[in-house]
């Protein structure tokens, strides 16, 4: 059932399928080098075909030299479809990098560099990364994300080099956090996570929020947010006219 909600995974999977089977000789070679590269990071304590937190950190920070403070780090993590933050599985690692023909650290760095500007410009790519983050951010046995964790991830994703949501009159991300602070106490479920991005994407297109209506399909939390935003706007307009 997840296939549908994350249909993009299928595309990617088939991409790599064709990449590996279509042109066999060069990729086979890539596979070997990638497997070797992978083993570099594997600790003794880690499970078979799995790199743990320490190895991941080493890989990201020292070799790939990506920042862990911003959305950049999600580029390799998404590509390798890591099962959770701080874990990398071997087959996905190989598959992911092979699909973009990057079997050395240098090539991988170049790949990340090429993708970085796309986060804020290619909405489809950003959405893919964004939805992926929810899946890895979640504790394994939990369905929803605690609010503070969600907020942290949002902050990473919604700030450069991630996508920002600011229009002429409103900083939507800031308003969203303000609203959560004031009114929201529950956890963040998948629907809320996904719909938040959908809503923000629409909000920057039309900051009057005319696309929204009370009977629409938005989850209640978005409805509440709209009410909050409108009240705030009314108040500030009143102040201006006074």
């Amino acid at each position: 059932k997840f296939l549908k909600t994350s249909g993009w995974k299928l595309d990617q999977a088939s991409d790599s399928y064709f990449a590996s089977h279509g042109i066999v000789p060069p990729t086979e070679k890539g596979k070997d080098s990638l497997e070797r590269l992978f083993e570099n990071y594997r600790d003794k304590g880690d499970g078979k075909d799995l790199v743990g937190a320490e190895g991941t950190m080493k890989y990201l920070l020292e070799d790939l030299k990506v920042s862990l403070e911003n959305a950049e780090m999600f580029i390799p993590l998404e590509l390798c479809q890591v099962p959770s933050v701080g874990e990398i599985s071997k087959d996905k690692f190989v598959e992911g990098w092979k699909s973009v023909s990057a079997d050395t650290i240098a090539k991988q760095r170049a790949y990340i560099k090429s993708k970085l500007p796309l986060l804020s410009t290619d909405i489809a790519y950003f959405k893919r990364v964004y939805r992926f983050v929810y899946l890895v951010a979640r504790e394994r046995d939990q369905k929803a994300l605690p609010l503070d964790a969600a907020t942290t991830y949002w902050q990473v994703l919604f700030n450069p080099p991630g996508k920002t949501f600011v229009t002429a009159t409103t900083d939507w991300t800031a308003l969203w956090f303000e609203f959560l602070q004031a009114k929201w106490t529950k956890t963040v479920n998948k629907d809320m996570w996904n719909q938040t991005l959908e809503f923000l994407l629409k909000a920057i297109e039309d900051e009057t929020l005319s696309f929204w209506n009370e009977d629409g399909a938005w989850p209640s939390v978005i409805d509440d947010f709209v009410t909050y935003a409108k009240q705030k706007k009314d108040r500030s307009e009143q102040m201006e006219t006074d």
């Binding site: 059932k1 549908k4 909600t5 369905k143 929803a144 479920n189 998948k190 629907d191 809320m192 996904n194 719909q195 399909a217 938005w218 989850p219 209640s220 939390v221 409805d223």
Partner: peptide
């Protein structure tokens, strides 16, 4: 809508 939210969360429903 709140009930729909709950059902989405419990994965009786999904958003297409």
């Amino acid at each position: 809508k709140k009930c729909i939210d709950i059902l989405l969360e419990r994965e009786y429903l999904e958003r297409l």
